[in-house]
């Protein structure tokens, strides 16, 4: 379904909101939010060598425009001109585009969110960034069509004695209500996310950037859930503005 949706709608740009998993950023510099303005992004070596997929063309103009709008509105990201991307961007792109031999069908605008080192941003702040993202897309000159991929695993925890924690009931609740009733998720705090979805499942709040960029009313076209993918609840929802 996600790939069919891409073929039917032929977007020009994919905005991908994701977290780096200790691959492009080390703990020497931890940006809470980072925006990519590069012309091209290579897959990063995560320890096994870079995955054999094409480089990603960057939507640099939209990236700069977004950075301009963010800072004008007192929202201050790191701006990245040269950086590689990890599986946090690669896997959602493959889910939506398949694995092309030579070229991805869309340019990408990567947005990194720190979900590893505390302080991580609040869910409300993720939502607010989505509101800014919408303003930037709507005020961007031209007629590019944009798809927004809010990413992040559903429930999972990799560390501590609660490792292997999964919460399929909460995952299903999230998938069913992120479209019609996002306010309850936006109103939760960070500890609520960690408690409900696991220490690494707090990534899920990145979906709020995508949801905050959409209309109040959305149509949910597709919902899929699988648990566990390795140690993680995995889900996909396709939504359009109503």
């Amino acid at each position: 379904m996600p790939q069919q949706w891409m073929r039917d709608h032929k977007p020009d740009i994919a905005v991908v909101i994701f977290n780096d998993h200790g691959n492009s950023f080390f703990l020497d510099r931890v940006p809470t939010f980072a925006v990519g303005v590069a012309d091209s992004y290579k897959p990063v070596d995560e320890g096994w060598g870079p995955r054999a997929i094409p480089d990603f063309d960057g939507a640099a103009d939209l990236g700069w425009h977004f950075a301009d709008r963010l800072v004008e509105r007192h929202f201050d990201p790191l701006i990245c001109r040269e950086i590689e991307v990890d599986h946090g961007l690669q896997v959602p792109m493959e889910l939506f585009c398949g694995r092309p031999a030579e070229r991805w069908p869309v340019k990408v605008l990567p947005i990194w969110v720190n979900t590893i080192q505390f302080p991580i941003p609040t869910p409300q702040r993720c939502w607010d960034m989505g509101v800014m993202l919408r303003e930037a897309i709507e005020s961007f000159p031209g007629d590019d069509r944009v798809v927004i991929m809010g990413t992040g695993g559903l429930s999972h925890q990799l560390q501590g004695r609660r490792a292997g924690f999964l919460n399929p009931a909460a995952d299903r609740d999230w998938l069913a209500t992120i479209g019609p009733d996002p306010d309850r998720w936006r109103g939760m705090n960070r500890e609520d996310y960690v408690e409900t979805f696991g220490s690494e499942g707090a990534e899920l709040m990145m979906w709020l950037v995508m949801r905050g960029a959409m209309n109040r009313e959305v149509r949910t076209l597709h919902t899929h859930y699988h648990v566990p993918a390795s140690m993680t609840g995995a889900g996909c929802v396709v939504m359009e503005n109503a």
Binding site: F26, I116, Q117, E191, S199
Partner: peptide, 21 residues
């Protein structure tokens, strides 16, 4: 605190910096 759930905060950053590097 969330039981059995270590969060990666400033104390752990300091303690584990060389290992993570």
């Amino acid at each position: 605190e969330i039981p059995d759930t270590p969060l990666f905060d400033r104390d752990v950053n300091r303690q584990g910096y060389a290992l993570n590097k």
